[in-house]
């Protein structure tokens, strides 16, 4: 078969992907950016004139007489979302790294079973997983019932419908997304390098700090991004076990396409969210460059 023919076949093979993901992901995303720079129509739709009003209203509250005052509530929601997603990522890394390391040092047959064990909760419906925590945490939930049955009901502190519950729920949801990429990165790590470090009198801590962690940095970065991206857009966890009391980015976006019906504003928030993720995505690169300079 001629190479030109093979080339045509390859392009034909890739055409459906470009049609599907290009048409239903790239095109809509461009549309979001476009709509973010329009004005809200009189009947809730979009008025196609160029305007930065949606972005301005993220920061300023413009009155009818034209005076503007700084609107802190959206900044606060932005910071809360970023902080919760960042904290979730950090906790998942701390909790998940030892787990992934342990799995990666097992014989291959056992390793795949253990990875499946970690993956199953991830393959369960997000809503079901969060709802399960409601049964455990609530005022008449399992922990409360168990403690009061033991006569220690006073020990119980209800964290349901607080930011703590959101953090717990998000950590629970996204932990497998941290462990699995860490595992695949760690299992490629050559054990002889660790032995060599040990032979050269590196302490166990130094082996971890100077050998294992730098060599698995790409896996760590991948895991952090995989956790951070859904965490920053999560609106299910804050709605259900946050009781809807803590508004996050995702809630704000969903609101604009529901009851608030302000498309340009919703699109502007979505654009800010994508920018935040873009910034967070370059962070691992910067850190690696710093580390590379040190080493």
């Amino acid at each position: 078969m001629s190479s030109a023919r093979a080339r045509t076949n390859r392009v034909l093979g890739l055409a459906p992907v470009w049609l599907l993901i290009g048409g239903l992901l790239l095109a809509p995303l461009l549309l979001v950016v476009a709509i973010a720079f329009t004005e809200q129509g009189a009947y809730g739709g979009v008025d196609w004139t160029f305007s930065g009003a949606a972005f301005v209203s993220l920061l300023y509250n413009v009155d009818f007489d034209g005076t503007a005052s700084v609107e802190w509530s959206y900044v606060q929601i932005f910071l809360t979302s970023a902080a919760l997603a960042g904290a979730t990522t950090a906790i998942c890394l701390l909790v998940g790294f030892p787990v992934a390391y342990f799995i990666s040092r097992q014989p291959p047959s056992r390793r795949s079973v253990l990875m499946l064990l970690v993956a199953i909760p991830f393959w369960t419906d997000l809503l079901v997983r969060i709802y399960a925590w409601m049964i455990i945490l609530g005022n008449d939930g399992l922990i409360a019932s168990a403690l009061s049955a033991l006569g220690a009901g006073w020990l119980y502190r209800n964290i349901l419908f607080t930011p703590k519950a959101i953090l717990l729920g998000m950590t629970y949801n996204y932990l497998p997304l941290m462990i699995l990429p860490l595992c695949s990165s760690l299992e490629k790590l050559d054990g002889r390098l660790i032995e060599a470090a040990a032979d050269l009198y590196a302490s166990r801590w130094s082996r971890m700090k100077d050998v294992i962690i730098p060599l698995t940095a790409p896996g760590i970065a991948a895991g952090c991004m995989l956790v951070f991206i859904p965490a920053v857009g999560d609106f299910v966890t804050p709605t259900i076990i946050g009781g809807g009391k803590t508004l996050l980015f995702g809630n704000l976006v969903a609101l604009q396409f529901g009851s608030a019906h302000n498309w340009p504003f919703g699109a502007a928030i979505a654009v800010v969210m994508l920018l935040l993720i873009g910034c967070a995505g370059t962070l691992p690169l910067l850190i690696r460059r710093r580390l590379g300079r040190v080493a």
Binding site: V17, G22, L24, L31, I229, G233, G250, F257, L274, I277
Partner: peptide
């Protein structure tokens, strides 16, 4: 391109699709 849906929060993709 195929990996892109994983790099975008689902809520953003969903509302973008809704608008389209």
């Amino acid at each position: 391109l195929i990996a892109l849906p994983l790099a975008i929060p689902e809520i953003v993709l969903a509302i973008a699709t809704l608008m389209l």
